[in-house]
């Protein structure tokens, strides 16, 4: 017991010695050009980046559900320090953004940012075609919808394109005559959430043939195993441009969806009979038509015939012919 008490007394002495020690040990001087904190504000708080002083890096783990395409960090620096260049929003796919801090003592320290996107992997898209059946898509169609596990409702974060046999990429148009593309979530037959990226348009300039579909969402991308086949179709939707012209002048019919091709005839239907018009030029978007001098006055609805398809017409608006 005596031994134990002695031991306790000795420990107490050591403790008093430690607490009572007044000697100041000089620690290495801290850099005055440090990043003290790196935070990204969000709707529900903030995401904190890990600043590593040993290798001068900043690691930021960014969950997919924030749907950020850029981050706009709030950076806390040492007293009196400033950034060499103004902090601007950083693309989440950008790698190696460098922040150089200039301290009050004019020292400089550079930190490299790495953004780790936390996405649900892999990206899987629903195949329109199978090994046995190739889907036929009409060139210019603006009602294309691509389904996949995108885990976002922000259409600006998704990129989709058609890829031809040479590997050439042709992006779908995401802002068409039927409005901007959108993403609609739904529960699939298997009970899993699936997202339809819709209102996309196949570029009217493309040629018929086989194309793979390639989709990317931030850092993930996927390509279909089986291609779709692009084919010509019958234009059914025209840009609203009623005009008033004189005989001998021209007007233009422009398709807002299905590509125009091989226009063989253009005519007005007047009193149940065809009044043939002169086709001056055509491309996949529009056809320029001249009205013959002997065309009766009045408002006539134009029609065109593309290839072997039935006639196409705006249907309810026409071209007004005056003297």
């Amino acid at each position: 017991m005596k031994q134990f008490i002695s031991l306790t007394k000795m420990l107490l002495c050591i403790l008093v010695g430690i607490v009572g020690c007044t000697k100041t040990e000089e620690l290495p001087v801290l850099s005055q050009s440090r990043i003290l904190s790196f935070k990204v504000p969000t709707a529900d708080g903030e995401i904190i980046g890990a600043v590593d002083e040993s290798d001068k890096t900043i690691s930021l783990y960014l969950p997919f559900y924030y749907q950020f395409s850029v981050i706009d960090p709030e950076i806390k620096l040492s007293d009196g320090a400033s950034l060499l260049e103004e902090s601007i929003p950083v693309d989440v796919l950008a790698d190696g953004t460098v922040y150089t801090v200039v301290g009050a003592d004019h020292s400089r320290t550079s930190y490299t940012l790495t953004i780790h996107l936390q996405q649900v992997s892999p990206l899987v898209i629903t195949e329109p075609s199978t090994a046995d059946q190739t889907a036929l898509w009409t060139i210019g169609d603006n009602r294309i919808s691509i389904r996949g596990n995108f885990h976002t409702t922000d259409p600006t974060l998704i990129k989709a394109s058609l890829v031809d046999k040479n590997g050439q990429d042709y992006p779908f148009l995401a802002n068409t005559g039927s409005g901007p593309a959108g993403v609609a979530p739904a529960i699939g037959a298997d009970g899993k959430k699936i997202y339809a990226y819709g209102s996309l348009q196949i570029p009217q300039e493309l040629s018929p043939g086989l194309y793979q579909i390639k989709v990317s969402h931030l850092a993930l991308s996927a390509t279909t195993t089986y291609p779709v086949q692009l084919v010509w179709g019958r234009p059914t939707s025209f840009v609203y441009t009623p005009v008033t012209i004189k005989t001998g002048e021209t007007f233009t019919l422009e398709s807002s969806s299905t590509a125009i091709h091989d226009v063989r005839e253009a005519y007005f239907t007047i009193d149940g009979a065809k009044k043939m018009l002169e086709i001056l030029s055509q491309d996949t978007k529009k056809v320029v038509i001249r009205v013959p001098d002997d065309t009766p006055m009045g408002t006539h609805i134009p029609s065109i015939v593309c290839g072997e398809f039935e006639p196409s017409s705006p249907g309810w608006w026409g071209i007004t012919i005056t003297k």
């Binding site: 929003p89 600006t156 068409t176 409005g179 901007p180 840009v239 609203y240 441009t241 807002s256």
Partner: peptide, 26 residues
């Protein structure tokens, strides 16, 4: 020619009096 077609949104900073790029919407 496409009056019913909505264009991409425009974002404006009252502080700077300038338009802000679409990518910075969040």
């Amino acid at each position: 020619d496409n009056p019913t077609e909505a264009k991409p949104a425009i974002y404006f900073s009252l502080e700077t009096g300038q338009e802000v790029p679409n990518a910075q919407s969040k």
